[in-house]
Design a protein around this nucleic acid. Structure first.
Lengths: 222, 222
DNA sequence: GTCTATACTGAGATAGAC
DNA sequence: GTCTATCTCAGTATAGAC
């Protein structure tokens, strides 16, 4: 069939999002897509390249929308975009795709967390990320540079995890806000984090109470 | 040899920390440890159980130190522990093990990010985590419950990522602070995040500009 | 009790028939 | 473009040497 590629991409997106990358076999995907195993290698080349294709299919529109929002923010006369606004421009497009393709943010988060995003993907995202990091830098101008770079780094991990995993079940009633609500809470969280005063890095604050203890032996028992 | 188990644990800790779980083969580990393949299954049972053993070997001392620090904080008459102090009690013991066993925090972060921490591990950490979450709850009493739960969730991802990965190379001079400095910046970051005002969750803020666009096709070219 | 040798099943990848 | 057969290497299981 002509839409063999589509069927593979759809199945792969769903299954990778649900189970990660390493844990998924191509044989699972072909069973779900109802195609032959070799079709994946014919159309995509390898498991890794299949993942790249799955991501790139949606990344284009999302990243364009991100940049469009940032353009609009920066075009306003006079005002520097605030931390919240930059984060919103970055994150809201994900909430938008999530409406039609709920697997995609989950997938992106999981793959970032698993650390298997390819050079190909990184290169594709880098110009967009560069602009957002620049905008964030201007939004917190008083933060020392090394603190800022660490915060970007921390924020990435935070976003990846927020995208990929649900909140564990609440003790009382459910959480009704869904994905956009999650994004808005994430924006509040990260805004506070970026606005926090810089860390005072002291030396020699690490005691040795743990480091000195001998490792506890742990066997399988018998 | 009698220390076959030790050699396996040491090699596994190093290699899992460097390359993750899924990407590592047991044959890599046995080559590094200079033992036979079946020795792993004899001593540990499976790859997953080997990982559990690697983690549990260090988790005991670290988690005991965490709780000891929290005890000390809560024993002070009158004062509620502040956000920073709770985070410090939780994170500093990791900086301590990192001095002698730099692979361990990296490993913990990676495994958490890969989402392969076992029920066994979760059960072992849960009492300690429960006490810390309780202490954090008291440190931000005005935050609505749903916001608080999300923030704990976001914070976990943030911590996992901060533990597992270095900051990408800086543009100018290097960052000299090392692991404890990283932890202190992380504490500042998370403190700001937890202290931030609660999110105002609005409905219907998601436009459809991305969701409506047809997916861009992306093939391998021919 | 410990460890070695070896075989089994399922993974990703590839060549070649159609 | 598609499918079958096959290759290599992964994790796992087990029989038996010491």
């Amino acid at each position: 069939m002509i839409d063999t590629k589509q069927k593979i991409l759809d199945a792969a997106e769903r299954i990778f999002a649900d189970q990660g990358y390493g844990a998924v076999s191509l044989r699972q995907i072909i069973a779900d897509a109802e195609v032959n195993l070799a079709a994946i290698h014919y159309h995509f080349g390898s498991k890794q390249e299949l993942l790249d294709a799955v991501i790139m299919r949606r990344a284009g529109p999302v990243n364009r929308e991100r940049l469009a929002r940032l353009d609009r923010l920066e075009a306003r006369p006079g005002a520097q975009p605030a931390v919240e606004q930059v984060l919103e421009a970055f994150l809201m497009p994900m909430a938008e795709v999530a409406e039609n393709h709920p697997g995609f943010p989950k997938l992106m988060g999981r793959m970032q967390a698993e650390g298997i995003l390819t050079e190909v993907i990184a290169r594709n995202f880098q110009p967009m990320l560069g602009r957002f990091i620049g905008a964030m830098r201007k939004a917190v101008p008083d933060l020392p540079d090394s603190d800022f770079r660490w915060r970007v780094h921390f924020g990435q991990g935070c976003i990846a995890h927020a995208m990929s995993t649900e909140l564990p079940p609440p003790p009382g009633a459910g959480d009704i806000s869904g994905f956009p609500g999650r994004i808005q809470r994430l924006i509040a969280f990260l805004s506070g984090a970026f606005r926090a005063p810089a860390a005072v890095v002291r030396k020699g604050v690490v005691s040795k109470s743990v480091a000195r203890k001998p490792a506890k032996k742990l066997g399988k028992g018998k």
